[in-house]
Amino acid sequence: MTKYDPDLSLLFHALADPTRRSILTRLAETPARVTELAEPTGLRLPTVMRHLSVLEEAGLITTSKDGRIRTCAIVPEALDPVRSWLDEHRAIWEARLDRLDAFVMDVMKDSEE
């Protein structure tokens, strides 16, 4: 099992909020200006900026500034540690369930005899 990774905690924290997940979904299409990201949320710009800073701190997005316009882009490879962690835990639970299934089948076969 992988050791505790503080970056993984940052990623899960960033992904825990539905507003941040919707921002990531939007950025998966194409980079966008902060004002474009704020419009569908109904949140004030400072609140959206806080959400963006959480995403940027987790490494899920990058931002660039051109004059007064700040543009955000997604960093898809930043999700690789989450994917690896989930795959590892899926394998653990599938192995446990396979053992449980084999046990139940043995018990059922023994009870039929």
Rank of each mutant, 00 (worst) to 15 (best):
D110C: 08
E112L: 06
P46V: 03
L24E: 07
P76N: 04
R96V: 10
D110F: 10
L45H: 14
G59D: 03
P81V: 02
H13F: 14
K65C: 01
D5V: 02
E113L: 08
P40C: 05
G42A: 04
L60Q: 06
R33D: 15
V75P: 01
P40D: 03
L37M: 07
G59L: 13
F103W: 12
D87A: 13
R20H: 01
T62H: 04
K109P: 00
E36W: 11
L55A: 12
M108P: 00
L43Q: 14
S64H: 00
H89K: 15
A95Q: 15
A16S: 04
G67P: 01
H51E: 02
R33W: 07
E39K: 15
T35R: 15
P46W: 06
L100C: 10
P18R: 05
P40N: 05
T19Y: 11
R90W: 08
L8M: 11
T30W: 08
A38Y: 10
T19R: 04
E56T: 05
L10G: 09
E94Y: 06
P46F: 06
V48E: 06
W93N: 10
M108E: 15
S22T: 11
F103N: 13
P81I: 03
K3L: 14
R33H: 13
I92Y: 14
V34L: 15
W85Y: 11
R70C: 10
R90K: 08
R44F: 08
I69T: 15
L10R: 15
R90T: 13
R83E: 12
R99C: 03
T25I: 03
L60S: 06
H89I: 09
L15C: 00
L60R: 11
D5I: 01
V75D: 00
T25R: 00
R33P: 09
A78T: 04
R20W: 04
H51G: 00
P76Q: 04
L52E: 06
R90D: 11
